[in-house]
Design a protein around this nucleic acid. Structure first.
Lengths: 222, 222
DNA sequence: ACAAAAGTGTTCGATATACACCCATGT
DNA sequence: ACATGGGTGTATATCGAACACTTTTGT
């Protein structure tokens, strides 16, 4: 009936390295837009849910599983792809460290770019990326996505650096610490990060159980 | 290539009547789920943008144009439609009054239902509706969608009733009035609603120009 | 005069912001 | 002892929540 509309799942993958918010882009090997940078993605298979497709692409591009993934928006302008009607269901993912990158089949090359310094992008991907950044910033304020940008354990300074990188502004140390500790979702570890010639910093971890209790009380609304 | 995936645009249409938040449902005439209630929608045409498709469906079902419309979420479970793979791109719309309803071609009947008393719905539409309600509630807090549920001019009491209907709880009159007036987006009219045997209530209108100024200052972030 | 709904201020607690010094460690 | 980053408290402004009476009109 409805002829030949194709569905793509495209993913904006965020990570932080060098105190900078970055996204993963791949250089296109084939037409259209061969040689240009684009966000990773691919077509949705016949019997695959949309999120499964996104996770599959994510695994193919980065080798990562078990990471934060959320549907972003669906872009369906009839002319957004010169090959014909392709509707892009975009997702955004948040990974703990900007590594584990391997080239996929459609990709010549994969590389992390600071969001403040992006190359010219294929298709309407610039728009998608800008929207994803906005969403990430909003979500950082009232959810716990921030923790997904860090590993299992982290210091409060590292956590603050995540917020500073995403918002691209510096925060007051005392106010920041009070605020995150008041959330009561962090568990202090009996472990310290000792590095160089300074006072060791305490490690914390995000406590899923504490978080669930607060959700039940309606403090978070995700 | 990718065979025969169909794209539907489905719309949750909100309105308030009798101090109650309602959505428009249509009774399905044909299989599958013939005789069950469903949210209005239809397939996206070949050369139509997604939002255009949603607006077209909306016009066909209600006769309304120029109303608030926003993409909600894309539901694409492989088994959500027994006829085959149908991906539903859902929108939510907000109209000023629960009238202007005519039956569409696929619909036997159209009717407004209070969100607190919905019938059993076809497909995965229950889930979609619940998600839309949640989104509407969130958006009411930090945007101006609320005004879309009212006509051109309205009294502060009517505005409060909108918020009370959506949140399903009563609000303090003094706090509510102070809060909306502080937003500085309402313009008092030299016109009063005189009705029955009580003191007349002043009409206000939403002032687009005042709103734009505030947006420029970053007070709203929509 | 009274019934009905409109309109109006103040107090209090919680939360956000601004701001500067001491502490623990390695070299 | 000193350089490095970790860690801590207080004062002020702002915002949301609770709460009751007077005003204007029609009958």
């Amino acid at each position: 009936m409805k002829p030949n509309i194709k569905i793509a799942a495209d993913i904006i993958i965020f990570a932080i390295t060098d105190l900078t918010l970055k996204i993963l882009l791949i250089k296109r090997k084939y037409q259209p837009f061969a040689g240009l940078w684009a966000i990773p993605g691919g077509f949705v298979e016949e019997n695959e849910s949309l999120e499964d497709a996104a996770r599959r692409e994510l695994r193919e591009e980065t080798g990562l599983t078990d990471i934060y993934l959320e549907q972003l928006y669906t872009f369906g302008d009839p002319n957004r792809d010169p090959r014909g009607r392709v509707i892009s269901i975009s997702y955004f993912a948040v990974v703990a460290e900007a590594k584990s990158v391997k080239g996929g089949t459609d990709a010549a090359e994969a590389q992390w770019f600071p969001v403040s310094d992006l190359p010219y992008l294929a298709f309407d991907h610039q728009r998608i990326v800008l929207y994803a950044i906005e969403r990430l910033r909003n979500k950082l304020e009232y959810t716990t996505v921030g923790f997904s940008l860090l590993g299992e354990k982290f210091t409060l300074t590292q956590l603050q650096q995540v917020y500073e990188a995403v918002f691209n502004k510096s925060l007051d140390k005392r106010n920041f610490r009070r605020k995150v500790l008041q959330l009561k979702v962090l568990e202090p570890l009996k472990e310290w990060k000792r590095e160089g010639l300074a006072r060791p910093a305490r490690y914390y971890k995000f406590s899923e159980t504490k978080f669930e209790k607060l959700k039940d009380k309606g403090i978070f609304f995700l």
